[in-house]
Nucleic acid binder design. Structure first.
Lengths: 252, 252
DNA sequence: CGGCTACTTGAAGGATTTCAACGTAGGTGG
DNA sequence: CCACCTACGTTGAAATCCTTCAAGTAGCCG
């Protein structure tokens, strides 16, 4: 086995203690690894796609596009993220997955996953854990759109990215690389790109964050969390409990 | 087996041809059926809950509440809906499930589900189908919040409810019972309850819908769909393809 | 009948969008 | 190397959508 430590494995391993064999079994999620240039559709909305996708490197978005061109970004995908878990079933996703930067994806067939699950029942928990996190991120975004002001949403987004980049080693001293245009943030936060600019300015003005090019530095985490009503529990940081583990591992 | 035709089964059967045995096997989802009065928490946000919930009758909401009391309704739950699919894993949901009307819920243990799956591998597809629909509804709601105006959102909500109530026999001649207060709609659409009132008035003014008490009548479906940019494909009405069926049924 | 909850309406205010203009940086071809 | 182009970011001013506040109505239930 080549490199058994890509972000997907990294994230799971931080929640579930994996045996060497289990770890190797996860390599199916690294199969068919393929490179995509920026702004490329990996999965097209409304077109046939019957696999599960895993992002290994780079940033991507999952988005719905309206007939008139308006775009809603459902969530940002970071290395190790999974998506399209129901595509083997529905065969036609109602959202698109599009790269933001250069990115590497795997598209895994359902049969390959089930084979790994049969060998190692705990795979169900490993996959489910990532799926639950994807759901959690998306639901919290919906809650932002529904209830928070633009200012609060922006603060929340930066904290969310911080908390998700941390476990895959992409944060150094409260700062991280964020390769997003204002338009991407706008479509994610449900505001105009002009207002993104103003909102970021206000965050800087209040000494909550600092921006240098594509680098974000969170100057005042507590202040941000207060502004955003950020509750990091929603990301299930605690890890998987032994009881949940054993309950779900019965699956095989 | 008592009554093998509750909405949960009804909806699955309309997508998957079920054998008598499979149908009976689905009765695990009717176990522990329990009644809840209106405005009662079935699942509490942040408190332990490690089962899968199924709504048999009545209306409910799935919502996130912010520390300061603001509430985002993620989706409305209708008879036959499933939720908390990841709760056996996460053990602590980051959302609440609350009844709107009198309602009957089942809470099913993960082991019971897996037992049914072992007997009838197609159960995976049946459950997955409902889960995919829940996800679809929630994502479309997020897209409404992100990109649509209050007017469009309201039109979209009414169409969504219509399309979801139809397959469980709760629509008569374009009209249906909607036991929602303006405040519930407001928290779902991300607008104030005052603006819900005005928005409904406008919909009536344009002869798109008619309201009598809690009964909604859609007067102009095409007009509504145009206003809402409604694409009913997102609900996967087409049903499950044989290829998807066989692919996923390998699970057992 | 009183008290509650839900709905409605008007008026004022605030948050956000739109429009328009300008600045900057990077990439390409002459 | 410069000219040009395009994509991205910024800023101001006006317009719009929506919220908040306040007050009034209607229905329901004790």
């Amino acid at each position: 086995m080549s490199e058994m430590n890509f972000p997907f494995v990294q994230r799971i391993a931080s929640h579930v203690a994996l045996s060497v064999e289990e770890r190797e079994s996860l390599s199916v999620f690294s199969a068919n690894r393929r490179h995509y240039p920026p702004k490329t559709d990996v999965v097209k909305q409304g077109e046939r796609f019957d696999r599960v996708a895993v992002l290994h490197s780079g940033w991507a978005i999952r988005a719905k596009v309206l007939p008139d061109g308006r775009r809603a970004i459902l969530n940002f995908m970071l290395p190790g993220d999974i998506c399209c878990l129901y595509c083997p079933l529905t065969e036609v996703p109602n959202y698109a997955v599009t790269t933001v930067t250069d990115a590497q994806f795997s598209a895994i067939g359902f049969d390959q996953i089930m084979q790994a699950v049969r060998q190692h029942p705990r795979m169900v928990a490993a996959i489910g854990w990532l799926a639950a996190q994807e759901e959690a991120v998306t639901l919290e975004r919906a809650s932002c759109l529904s209830q928070r002001t633009a200012f609060e949403r922006m603060a929340h987004l930066l904290l969310e990215l911080h908390h998700r980049l941390l476990p895959i080693g992409l944060v150094q001293e409260q700062s991280f690389h964020m390769p997003l245009t204002h338009e991407l943030m706008a479509d994610s936060l449900g505001i105009s790109h002009v207002h993104v600019s103003r909102t970021l300015r206000k965050l800087r003005g209040e000494r909550l964050v600092d921006l240098e090019g594509t680098t974000v530095r969170l100057l005042d985490m507590e202040g941000l969390e207060r502004v955003a009503a950020f509750d990091d529990l929603y990301l299930y940081r605690a890890g998987m409990s032994p009881t949940a583990m054993s309950r779900v591992a019965q699956a095989g």
